[in-house]
Amino acid sequence: MKGFKATLLTGRSLKQGMGKEISKTSDRYKESVSICEVHPKDMEDAGLKERDVIRVTTQFGSVIVKCVPSDHIPKPGIIFIPYGPYASALIGMNTNSTGMPTFKGISAEVEPAPGEKVLDIRQLLTNLGR
């Protein structure tokens, strides 16, 4: 298994939309936002199977999520994580004087992370200092 470089996009998904309407503390919400959509070819090249645990790293941070193949991904080298606390761990705080951080188009690295655990939302908050 080997890692690869990618461009990270974050955004809405229907599952995230429904998950948040159930509850931000529900498993359904956690499941909907702690995933990373990957191009099937990247999955194959990296020796990844659906729901394998991966580490995604950008210059701003790193997070453990589960990978899922997606035919919405236009080509190898693009990955997608739905909005939420997992995606936010990878976003920089510079807003280029607009108030808006760059949520789409961030250089990232993806590595298989067998044995690592996807943190709970509580644990993510502890990492934020509360």
Partner: peptide
């Protein structure tokens, strides 16, 4: 805290 970049959060 769910949607702001980590360092801002």
């Amino acid at each position: 805290l769910a949607h702001f970049p980590k360092d801002v959060a």
